[in-house]
């Protein structure tokens, strides 16, 4: 049996809102370690990998592995019914055909209970090996979101160039071009404002902004985004949770 209680419903709300436009049907795999999701978008370009570690929950028990096949659009509708500050408990039997969500208002005795029918979702789990990336950058997630949104007004593609002392985001379009250059900086008072670059090799990679627009929906999950890039391989965009992460693997674009 699964019983996982979030101190605040807002965390799961944010997670679902962050991924529901990238993937619709996915298995939430619950184990003693927490909840994982892995799913690839329909165009096979973007992969979502989520770990909500058991330490995120104020109470968590899961005696044996339980898979919850969820339609995220329906899940999002139900989860919006709860208040952000409510306790949220997920409950499922061992071989469930539904999952129960219990919202508890902390300021009153109101308890709201919803159940979502589960689906049989057949998706293959990919083993993604840890790899050495040419460059790892860490920057404020909100800045990355703004840069991508600004540059998406010009182009469908975002070029990212990384050297040891700068990160350059570029977009070239029919109506004009744009670029934003960032320099590494350490902010001691506000570490979440820091920008760091670890470089093994200079990077010049291009990505579809339509996918990045979905990735940056994770912005509210973490003050910082970690971007790991190697030339000509999928990049990893990561929002760290208090325990766990939301990762997106995005295949690059190559020049013809």
């Amino acid at each position: 049996m699964l019983e996982g209680k979030f101190e605040e419903a807002s965390l799961l709300k944010k997670v679902v809102e962050s991924i529901k436009d990238s993937v619709q049907l996915c298995n939430f795999v619950c184990s003693e370690h927490g909840i994982t999701v892995q799913a690839v978008d329909d165009s096979r370009v973007l992969l979502v990998s989520l770990l909500i570690g058991n330490e995120v929950f104020s109470d968590y028990r899961c005696d044996r592995n339980i898979t919850l096949g969820v339609d995220l659009k329906s899940f999002a509708k139900i989860i919006r019914c709860g208040g952000n500050d409510d306790y949220l408990t997920l409950i499922a039997e061992d071989s469930p055909d539904s999952v129960t969500l219990v919202f508890e208002d902390k300021n009153s005795d109101r308890i709201s209970e919803y159940s979502l029918k589960l689906m049989e979702i057949d998706n293959e789990f990919l083993k993604i090996d840890d790899m050495d990336y040419d460059s790892v950058i860490k920057m404020p997630s909100i800045d990355f979101q703004k840069i991508c949104r600004d540059l998406s007004t010009l182009s469908e593609s975002l070029q990212i160039l990384i050297t040891k002392d700068s990160i350059k985001f570029m977009a070239e379009g029919e109506t004009g071009n744009g670029s934003v250059i960032l320099k590494p900086r350490t902010d001691i008072d506000k570490p979440e404002q820091s920008i760091t670059v670890k470089l093994n090799n200079a990077v010049n990679s291009t990505f579809g902004l339509k996918y990045i627009a979905d990735i940056v929906k994770g912005t509210s999950l973490s003050n910082q985004i970690v971007i790991k890039i190697s030339n000509r391989t999928p990049a990893l965009f990561e929002y760290k949770l208090q325990s766990g992460y939301l990762r997106f693997y995005l295949a690059p674009k190559f020049e013809d």
Binding site: V40, S43, R44, V45, L46, L47, E124, L126, I128, S157, T206, G208, T233, P234, Y249, A251, P252, K253, F254, E255, D256
Partner: peptide
């Protein structure tokens, strides 16, 4: 001109 790659070229099973 850029061409979008698929994850399948990089991850088996994708």
């Amino acid at each position: 001109n850029f061409r979008q790659q698929s994850l399948a070229s990089f991850f088996s099973g994708a």
